[in-house]
Design a protein around this nucleic acid. Structure first.
Lengths: 251, 251
DNA sequence: CGACTTGTTGATGTACATCAAGGTACGTGG
DNA sequence: CCACGTACCTTGATGTACATCAACAAGTCG
């Protein structure tokens, strides 16, 4: 853990947990709600730059991101960094640590965030007593896998401008999904370095590519304000449809 | 589904299911075994080239790969292909279809394979009655995610020769893990086109890179026979260790 | 005390030379 | 015929270098 991070004494009630609406079949039952409340060991507020997990170390906790934006990444010994995915509110973080001793990736927070903290060793209790919650976790894991698949396709097979268009569209859609974006405008906490590290491009080339999109009047990104000016053009550049032309669902 | 694929009348007994040793806490109980037997709706034998799932279509089934090698991939409308991961015996396939209506990727079989078929709509039964099996599925999903993370790091940040070295080491280790490789020798069903599409490289460049590894006497790959000649050199080329120098675990 | 300079730092913008990877073409060999 | 091998040229992406710009802290002066 770097920077400041403190356990807040005032907990968000579990009735407002962002995991709730995910429950595929029904709302949380009273019993489940009680368990979730008991399962939760605390709440964490984190400032930009806080590292939640560090590649190569252990963590006794799992987190649910209640508010804020974070990102998962891996680094090579010489410092090259690959951002694997961005995490928006509702995301479940640290599941992978439950199958390996050490975390194989790091997680860093980009904005002021609030996280719900679970002790990892209670995960089995959850699976054995609350299958619906277990199902929710699997649902989130499968969704993460879909994002990774899509991202891998981008980095492996899309050109720089296609990749850039794609990630901007993707990030906008995810932000919109959790109510952080509206009317094609978002406040993005990312720098061009984050985009470059997510796309597997150099910073300079990312800058040139973003500038190209700006000059084409497809997007505008000044300061923290990001806006999509020409959605259709952006989608076309991103190769954002299935082979049959249908738009790609965000799960 | 392309090519031939038939449901075999002679089922592999569930006592020998490759999922069994995964059960983290204990062996399958008799009860669980009975359920798994009932859950299973049949067995599928598939020949090389068989498509198990097709991007953009629905599938009512989930599969466990009992024997054989397959690969997951995505395609762009213009035909560019990205291989997401290879599947070895023990792999669970199709989970992502449970959270989206349509499959977002395809799966094709590389060798003669046997698969255990589950009806997707019984997945919830499994979660509600057999939490240990649900846990196994989550374990496999988290493992798949780790492979994807690693792969994304490769494609995004490793050079052509690093990527190539890395995937060869990775494929060897996974084959060894399920008993398909020994003494640094494996029979690989892959063509250079598969490697190229997995690494996000062109076929020609992949060929040149493999040739470089061969000329350095690091690996040998003739016909289907693949052999690692200089493990340490290959690992070094692959940047195959953590920042602290410890070797990377295969989960 | 407030207002105005100065220095610092992190993010962005752009030019230019270089290079890694791509694309086409045409081999070979099983 | 398909997978592999290799040559030649092209190009997309990189790396270095440096300029700009805004945010912020420190110090200075009216």
């Amino acid at each position: 853990m770097s920077n400041t991070a403190a356990v807040s004494p005032r907990l968000v009630p579990c009735e407002r947990c962002p995991l709730r609406p995910l429950s595929v079949f029904r709302d949380f039952s009273a019993e489940e709600l009680a368990f979730v409340g008991e399962f939760k060991s605390g709440e964490l507020t984190a400032q930009p730059g806080t590292t939640l997990f560090m590649q190569g170390t252990n963590s006794a906790h799992l987190y649910t991101l209640l508010s804020g934006i974070a990102f998962r990444y891996k680094m090579l010994p010489d410092g090259r960094r690959q951002i694997l995915n961005f995490a928006f509110p509702g995301e479940f973080l640290g599941l992978q640590g439950s199958i390996a001793n050490e975390m194989q990736h790091s997680v860093e927070v980009l904005t002021d965030s609030v996280l719900c903290v679970f002790p990892r060793d209670k995960l089995w209790d959850l699976y054995s007593h609350y299958p619906s919650l277990a199902y929710d976790i699997t649902w989130l894991a499968a969704r993460e896998e879909q994002f990774l698949d899509e991202h891998l396709l981008s980095v492996g097979r899309r050109s720089a401008i296609e990749r850039t268009a794609f990630i901007l569209l993707h990030l906008y859609r995810r932000a919109e999904d959790v109510g952080l974006a509206k009317d094609r405008k978002v406040v993005f906490p990312f720098t061009q370095q984050h985009i470059a590290d997510a796309l597997g491009l150099s910073l300079v080339h990312t800058n040139k590519t973003l500038r190209r999109l700006y000059n084409m009047k497809v997007v505008r990104w000044q300061g923290r304000e990001f806006e999509i000016l020409d959605w259709d053009r952006l989608a076309k550049l991103a190769v954002y449809e299935e082979a049959d032309g249908k738009p790609r669902p965000l799960i």
